[in-house]
Amino acid sequence: MSKRKRLLIIGDIVGILAAFFIFIVPFVFMLLNSLKERREANLLRLNLPEVFAWENYGEVFRHSNYLLLTAFKNSMLITAGSVIVLIITCSMAGYVLQRRRQKITSIINSLIMIGLMIPPAILPTIFIMQDLHIYKTIFGMIMVEVALQTPFTVMLYRGFMNSVPIELEEAGYIDGCTRARLYGSIVFPLLKPVTATVIILNAVNVFNDFMNPLYFLPGAKNATVQLTLYNFMGQFQSSYNLLFADVIVITVPMLVLFIIFNKKIVEGMSAGAVKG
């Protein structure tokens, strides 16, 4: 027994050490270098700053006329907009797709599930968006994000509907409840646990997305936070302090989210994957 205990303590120590060097050091590296003066940061060392240059953060925000603030606003709008639209459309779709067992619903389901595997065809999407006059707009970006996250979100809702008892709906229908109210006031509230998962997963995915804004939202005026970092990479090649300050600024929202919803995020991500 004592041998086993000793083994576990060794496991703890080895685990902490490995986690520290492999996973924590890169973050410490970002943070320390974001607080150094330019010349010192460019040495890319892992030491405490000689003087703490907190003004790096102010400078990153002030850069090109407060572009980063605009970018934060845009990213928040896109993230919130996509998540809200996804919750509404996909919960309804998942509900009906799970309850109606017909040929037509199973065909629709298979069509949507194609998107889990196959990547989007990008240029034809741009072409259609130009036709609709929504290319390079926040609205257009939201629609693209919604379309790309729809398969996964529908899958989560459809899977969860399996565990929602059908009797309530039948009783409500017989009592003369309309189909919209039946869904809105009986079914949707029951979906709360999976809705929480949907919010967190999609918020992380959309906020961190770089490729789609690069294609569908080019131009400085509509930049998202990821695009500002990409632009800074070109401009700040010799000012690592500002580059890392930007990295920290766009990572902090995720860190806050993680600290608050730690359990929920981890459970949601693993449950979502296993059901797929």
Binding site: A93, V96, R99, V146, A147, L148, E170
Partner: peptide
């Protein structure tokens, strides 16, 4: 008929968005 409780209209928003921004581009590509 149990299916009557579940309106096909509920599928329309998802189908429209997914078709315009994913399926149609996919086929036209």
């Amino acid at each position: 008929n149990k299916n009557k409780i579940y309106s096909m209209w509920f599928l329309i928003p998802s189908i429209v968005i997914f078709s315009i921004f994913f399926l149609i581009p996919l086929v036209s590509s």
